[in-house]
């Protein structure tokens, strides 16, 4: 189909898949924040609820996410290669007026984020990095006398390690960069911005990216400095 080959069509797919992942990141962050205790039973209960959802929903959700990631990455790489060819020879003097470090390095922040996601999956989802603290292997009593995986214990022990904390906090900084361009870019690509709304969208996008960064980084950092025990 023409749409999937077109310049704007592929950008729209990048934008939509990217934005879906942003939404996922927001939900994920809300879930994470249960570690601060606003949900009865804390993060363990939250994780338990999540995993008690019917299997088709979980599998569907994961496959959906996988699809977003794959589409986003494939088109990202393809478009980047094409764009590099758009100007084969660079200028002797580089002069930047409006582009930002974030906008110019989307491919690299993207690659780093992918690496981080793989690490994060291995760490907390498949729990193969520190098997001794794996939540699935350390069941604890939860609400309603259920026995639930000890996610809290796994997370606490992981982030008491300064190296792991730095990896996570660093990755979130990269996420901030990626999204500070990506969120406003989504509105532009979808055609939902104008000269009047664009400055606001750009600011709001950066703020949202900052909020995600602060939210995500809060967990490892508060654990590291023993605010969260």
């Amino acid at each position: 189909m023409q749409f999937f080959k077109s310049s704007i069509g592929r950008k729209i797919l990048m934008a939509i898949t990217g934005q879906c992942m942003v939404l996922f990141a927001v939900i994920h962050l809300l879930g994470n924040s249960s570690i601060f205790g606003w949900l009865p039973g804390g993060i363990n209960a939250y994780a338990h609820h999540l995993h008690s959802l019917p299997a088709p929903i979980i599998i569907g959700f994961r496959l959906g996410l996988l699809l977003f990631v794959v589409v986003h990455i494939c088109y990202g790489i393809q478009l980047t290669i094409e764009n590099r060819g758009g100007r084969p020879q660079q200028y002797a003097v580089k002069s930047v007026q409006k582009a930002t470090f974030a906008s110019e390095n989307m491919i690299w922040t993207g690659v780093l984020l992918m690496a981080f996601i793989l690490y994060h999956l291995a760490h907390f989802t498949f729990q193969i990095i520190n098997p001794e603290t794996a939540a699935l292997k350390n069941m604890v009593p939860g609400l309603d006398n259920h026995v639930v995986p000890n996610v809290l214990g796994m997370v606490l022990s992981a982030f008491q390690n300064i190296g792991v904390t730095l990896i996570y906090a660093g990755a979130m900084l990269i996420l901030f960069l990626h999204l500070s361009h990506g969120i406003q870019s989504f509105f532009q690509t979808m055609g939902w911005s104008s000269d009047k709304t664009q400055p606001f969208i750009t600011k709001a996008g950066t703020l949202a990216a900052l909020a995600l960064f602060l939210g995500y980084a809060a967990v490892p950092l508060t654990i590291l400095v023993h605010i969260l025990k």
């Binding site: 310049s7 764009n83 409006k98 930002t100 906008s103 870019s185």
Partner: peptide, 13 residues
Amino acid sequence: GFGNCTNHYECQA
């Protein structure tokens, strides 16, 4: 042979 848009907005500048 033109490239694609990555919303840098250098064009407007």
